[in-house]
């Protein structure tokens, strides 16, 4: 009942295990993060500078995605060792 945790969030959680959800939603986020990070690296390489305005602008996506991917990997790891 907030924009952060919606009915959809709850139905997604109810629809599968950590394993199956990280193989679908988690995979989308991992691929998205890889694409954004690759773009950042390519921009830096082509400009020959450690940071460029264009690469910096991608951080709006890369930092939140990195947080989500870290959570997905942590959940998978916890599932693995439990």
């Amino acid at each position: 009942m907030t924009s952060l945790v919606t009915e959809s969030t709850k139905s997604v959680i109810d629809s599968g295990t950590v394993d199956s959800l990280s193989n679908s939603f988690g995979l989308v986020v991992v691929v998205l993060l890889i694409v954004v990070l690759l773009e950042q690296e390519l921009m830096r390489a082509f400009r020959g500078r450690p940071t460029t305005p264009a690469a910096r602008r991608l951080s709006v996506a890369s930092v939140p995605l990195l947080l989500i991917v870290t959570a997905v990997f942590t959940a998978r790891f916890a599932e693995l060792v439990s």
């Binding site: 959809s8 295990t17 939603f25 989308v28 986020v29 996506a61 989500i68």
Partner: peptide, 18 residues
């Protein structure tokens, strides 16, 4: 505006069940 897709992706992709 990019914050809105980030919000929705986080709300469905975060492994919350545990």
């Amino acid at each position: 505006l990019a914050l809105l897709p980030i919000l929705r992706i986080a709300s469905v992709a975060m492994p919350l069940s545990a």
